[in-house]
């Protein structure tokens, strides 16, 4: 529910910046997946912890920095992901789509671990008319 609140605040801010509904939807998809990953992995099995979300408008898109104080990413890096190769309900995984959405919609995705902090930085291009 904290994630829903954060997304609502973000959406109101985007409206004030003149960002239209289609782009707001894209931003919401990416930020929801990033925050879900923090909640489900970094803070897995522990009490909820703080997440800092810094977003600034940068050219035709957003520059985003997300940091948390949870567990590091296994292996110190982002896992690989790929889209399912084709239709076939049996082969389909019910998870794993979050990172695929993040990777598809962002550029220059970069994960670093500094001390006790996870840092995720990326660009979120919003092409075309910002009012869309």
């Amino acid at each position: 529910m904290a994630i829903r609140r954060a997304l609502r605040t973000l959406s109101h801010w985007l409206i004030r910046q003149g960002i239209g509904p289609s782009h707001r939807g894209t931003v919401q998809i990416v930020i929801a997946e990033v925050l879900n990953n923090v909640a489900e992995h970094a803070y897995r099995g522990t009490r909820a912890g703080p997440v800092t979300l810094l977003i600034c408008i940068c050219g035709a898109g957003l520059a985003v920095h997300v940091s948390d104080r949870g567990a590091p990413m296994p292996g110190g890096q982002l896992p690989d992901c790929s889209a399912p190769d084709g239709p076939g309900a049996e082969a389909m995984n019910e998870g794993g789509y979050g990172l695929l959405l993040i990777r598809t919609l962002t550029r220059d995705l970069c994960y670093t671990r500094n001390g006790t902090c996870n840092n995720l930085r990326f660009l979120l291009p919003l092409l075309g008319d910002p009012r869309e």
């Binding site: 939807g25 399912p84 789509y97 695929l100 959405l101 598809t104």
Partner: peptide
């Protein structure tokens, strides 16, 4: 709705 359709499209679930 548009954002929901986008999630299905980007994950290729629109072909499933």
């Amino acid at each position: 709705t548009p954002t929901v359709a986008k999630v299905f499209r980007l994950t290729r679930m629109d072909s499933v």
